[in-house]
Simulated scan of single mutants.
Amino acid sequence: MSRLAYQYVVLRCVPRVDREEFLNVGVVVYCQAADYLQVGWQVDDTRLRALDPRLDVDQVRDALRFVEGVCAGDDRGGAAAGHPIGQRFGFLKAPKSTVIQPGPVHGGVTADPADQLRHLLGCLVG
């Protein structure tokens, strides 16, 4: 069984940047050797609204759907989706001052990037 190097970032919802509070809402996994770039996400309305009752949770979901489009390389991801897979991951891991922000890049090895995404999503978001 071959072991493949991968990188991942946790996506955080930061409803109010001034308070520096966040909730993990997704994980992006990139494995160059497997040509794999996917996001898994889960939005808990109640927990997000505890941070900011005025938060537009539908806007958070729209932002995560945009990330899905970037990963898939389809129209949902706008211009960023048209780039090679490594550049798309670079776009997603770049710091942003929006409601959805990536955390630091982490790495590891796995035999199955999709299974690793499910594992990380369960541990870090779910």
Rank of each mutant, 00 (worst) to 15 (best):
E21Q: 15
F89K: 01
V57G: 03
R3S: 14
P84M: 10
G108L: 10
L51Q: 13
F22I: 02
R88W: 00
A5Y: 01
A34V: 03
D35I: 00
G103T: 01
A79Q: 13
G26T: 06
A79G: 04
R16Q: 12
R3D: 12
H106Q: 14
G77K: 05
Q42P: 09
R88A: 00
V29G: 01
V70Q: 08
Y6T: 09
D56L: 10
V14E: 15
Q101I: 13
Q38Y: 11
G126H: 12
P102G: 12
Q38R: 15
F91Q: 02
G103V: 06
V57Q: 01
D58N: 12
C13N: 09
D44I: 13
V39P: 03
R3N: 10
E68D: 15
L11S: 05
Y8D: 02
V99G: 08
G103N: 05
A34L: 09
V17P: 02
K96L: 12
V29C: 02
G108W: 09
P113I: 10
P104S: 15
L48F: 06
R3W: 14
H83T: 14
P15M: 11
D115W: 01
A80G: 00
G73I: 10
A72E: 04
V70N: 08
F89T: 10
D56P: 08
R12F: 06
